[in-house]
């Protein structure tokens, strides 16, 4: 299945782009996607703490993904 991954702030700087498509095996969960990201983009590990959003909602690492999902890597927010 295809997953769109979006990056922001420090995450975007580390990955060097703000969006990419990733291929994930069926029945993959968020943690599988993160493992793939860390393998393909070693600098991603420098991000330290971050949250994950799936389709505009905060999600857990154990949440299942489905084809076409939009996953966002959310570094600590600092709006306002």
């Amino acid at each position: 299945m295809k997953i769109t991954v979006k990056f922001f702030a420090l995450g975007k700087d580390l990955i060097g782009q703000d969006e990419l498509e990733m291929e994930l095996s069926e029945s993959g969960v968020v943690a599988d996607l993160i493992a793939q990201l860390e393998e393909k983009f070693p600098p991603f590990k420098e991000l330290g703490s971050y949250l994950i959003a799936v389709n505009l909602e905060y999600a857990e690492h154990t949440d299942a993904l489905k084809d076409g999902d939009e996953v966002a890597i959310i570094p600590p927010v600092s709006g306002g």
């Binding site: 420090l10 959310i74 600590p76 927010v77 600092s78 709006g79 306002g80």
Partner: peptide
């Protein structure tokens, strides 16, 4: 909780702010 980020640009460099 709102996904907005600020980068401070100071005289001695730039920093993504990672606390609220």
């Amino acid at each position: 909780i709102v996904p907005i980020w600020k980068k401070e640009v100071a005289v001695d460099g730039e920093t993504w702010i990672d606390d609220h």
